[in-house]
């Protein structure tokens, strides 16, 4: 495990990679890392985002034209409505959307963890999902003869997780809102964890073991404006401002403000 600056860590994401972002919708998302990707003069492009759910953090990358493919089971802003840039790109067919569900993501991760190419489940059958995902095949249960769906293994080049605390061994403490973070780190080639705090030893209750963590970045308020329970709640005003600015057609204006030093310091005062 290496401790890197945010700037150094952001260089690890290359164009064309599949990246999994930790947390869920507006909770504990690695926003400071996303901000650093946006700050790069050579922004990576044609990324595939493999998230359990996508929201503000990935919508920023979609708006900046950095996402080729979105794989998730929900892309939206919860109480704040539709994700503005994803919705626009989706309506125009400017982004490849691979429909996932809770089951396809969960079993896809487990298949990789188990070292097999797929895991079967009774899901999707009779819905339009198999038409929208022609890459997914069905399989006959060898015991009962019932038709099942064979969900293919999922992995990613890099996983980026925001946690509460890490220690010198790279052990990480999340909060109790795990989403799929504990599995993402097992199927990623490179694991980057940004944390509110780095300590010598976080003790026995570890959520992500240091043995799978490659990079730790110190990032206080690193999930802002998403929440980092119990340290800070969602900054609703900021999320609402993002949605309003995008809907007014001013995505670039929002990003310019977000990349400013003032935004960075304001996030840390709130």
């Amino acid at each position: 495990m290496t401790v890197l600056s945010m700037q150094e860590a952001a260089q690890l994401v290359q164009s064309g990679m599949t990246v999994g972002l930790g947390g869920m919708t507006l909770y504990r998302r690695p926003v400071a890392f996303i901000r650093e990707l946006l700050r790069r003069p050579d922004r990576p492009t044609n990324l595939t985002l493999l998230n359990f759910t996508s929201s503000y953090e990935t919508d920023l990358l979609v708006g900046a034209g950095m996402v080729g493919t979105s794989r998730t089971c929900y892309f939206g802003m919860e109480a704040f409505g539709l994700a503005p840039m994803f919705t626009e790109a989706g309506n125009r067919g400017e982004i490849t959307i691979i429909e996932e569900t809770e089951m396809s993501i969960a079993l896809g991760l487990r298949a990789t963890m188990s070292g097999v190419g797929f895991l079967p489940a009774f899901a999707w059958l009779g819905t339009d999902m198999l038409k929208l995902r022609p890459d997914i095949k069905t399989i006959e249960d060898p015991y009962s003869g019932e038709t099942l769906v064979a969900f293919p293994a999922l992995k990613c080049d890099a996983a980026v997780i925001h946690g509460l605390r890490a220690d010198r061994r790279g052990n990480v403490l999340l909060n109790q809102h795990f989403a799929i973070d504990r599995e993402l780190v097992l199927v990623a080639d490179t694991v980057i964890v940004t944390v509110e705090d780095i300590v010598d030893d976080i003790g026995p209750h570890v959520h992500i073991p240091g043995v799978v963590v490659d990079v730790v970045v110190h990032a206080p308020q690193g999930a802002y404006p998403t929440s980092c329970y119990p340290l800070y709640p969602i900054s609703g005003e900021e999320i609402l401002d993002y949605v309003d600015t995008c809907q007014a057609g001013d995505f670039e204006k929002y990003v310019a403000r977000m990349l400013s030093d003032e935004w960075y310091s304001a996030a840390r005062v709130e």
């Binding site: 998730t72 089971c73 929900y74 892309f75 939206g76 539709l82 994700a83 994803f86 919705t87 989706g90 309506n91 125009r92 067919g93 959307i97 429909e99 996932e100 569900t101 809770e102 089951m103 489940a121 009774f122 899901a123 999707w124 059958l125 009779g126 819905t127 999902m129 929208l132």
Partner: peptide, 21 residues
């Protein structure tokens, strides 16, 4: 038109997994 819909929605969550049973 799935490629260019009138309105892209957030997605299905676990609906295709649970509603069929």
């Amino acid at each position: 038109d799935y490629q260019k819909p009138r309105l892209r929605l957030p997605g299905t969550g676990g609906i295709p997994d649970v509603s069929i049973k």
